[in-house]
Computed example of a mutant assay.
Amino acid sequence: MTHFMCLQCGVQFAETELPPEHCPICEDERQYVRWEGQAWTTFDDVARTHKVAMKDEVGVLAFGIEPRFAIGQRALLAETPDGNVLWDCISLVSDEVVAEIKRRGGLQAIAISHCHYYSAMVEWSEAFGGIPIHIHADDRQWVMRPHPSVVFWEGETLTLNPSLTLVRCGGHFAGGQVLHWQRDGGSAILSGDILQVVPTRRHLSFMHSYPNQIPLNARTVRRIATALEPFDYDDIYGAWWGSNVIGDAREAMRVSVDRYLAAIA
Rank of each mutant, 00 (worst) to 15 (best):
G175F: 02
S191I: 12
F128H: 08
E123L: 10
W142K: 10
D138N: 15
P148W: 06
A137M: 08
G129M: 08
T157Y: 12
E123F: 11
T159A: 15
I131N: 01
A137E: 15
T157P: 04
L160Q: 03
T157S: 09
I135Q: 00
P146N: 04
Q182L: 14
G186C: 07
L179P: 09
V151Y: 13
F128Y: 11
C169L: 12
H180G: 09
W124R: 03
G171K: 09
I131P: 02
F128G: 04
S191R: 06
G129K: 10
R168P: 08
I189P: 02
H180W: 15
I189E: 02
S191W: 01
S163W: 09
F128P: 01
G192I: 09
P148A: 05
W124T: 01
S163I: 12
G186W: 04
S163C: 13
L179S: 07
L164V: 07
H136G: 12
T159E: 14
E126Y: 06
S149D: 09
Q182M: 14
P132Y: 00
V167N: 02
F152H: 05
N161T: 09
R140A: 14
Q177M: 14
A137V: 11
W181G: 05
H147K: 03
N161W: 02
L160C: 07
T157I: 12
A188P: 07
C169S: 15
T157C: 07
I135Y: 00
S149G: 06
S149T: 09
D184A: 15
A188L: 01
E154Q: 13
V122Y: 00
G171A: 12
V150E: 07
D193P: 05
G130M: 06
W142L: 10
G185M: 10
V122S: 00
I131K: 01
S191H: 02
T159N: 14
A174G: 15
H172G: 10
P146Q: 04
H147C: 04
S163F: 11
W124K: 04
Q177E: 14
D139S: 08
F173Y: 15
T165C: 11
P148M: 02
D139F: 00
R140S: 12
Q141I: 13
G171P: 10
M144H: 11
G185T: 08
H180F: 12
I135W: 00
L190Q: 01
Q141W: 07
D139W: 00
W181A: 13
G155F: 08
F128N: 04
C169R: 09
C169N: 11
R168L: 07
G130Y: 06
G170T: 07
T159C: 14
E156N: 11
V122M: 00
A127T: 01
T159M: 15
L190V: 10
A174W: 10
L158C: 09
V151E: 12
P148Q: 06
Q182C: 13
V178G: 11
F152Q: 01
H134N: 05
L179E: 06
G130N: 03
L160K: 11
S125Y: 00
S149P: 01
L179I: 14
E154R: 14
V151K: 15
L164C: 08
V178Q: 06
H147G: 03
G170N: 09
G186P: 05
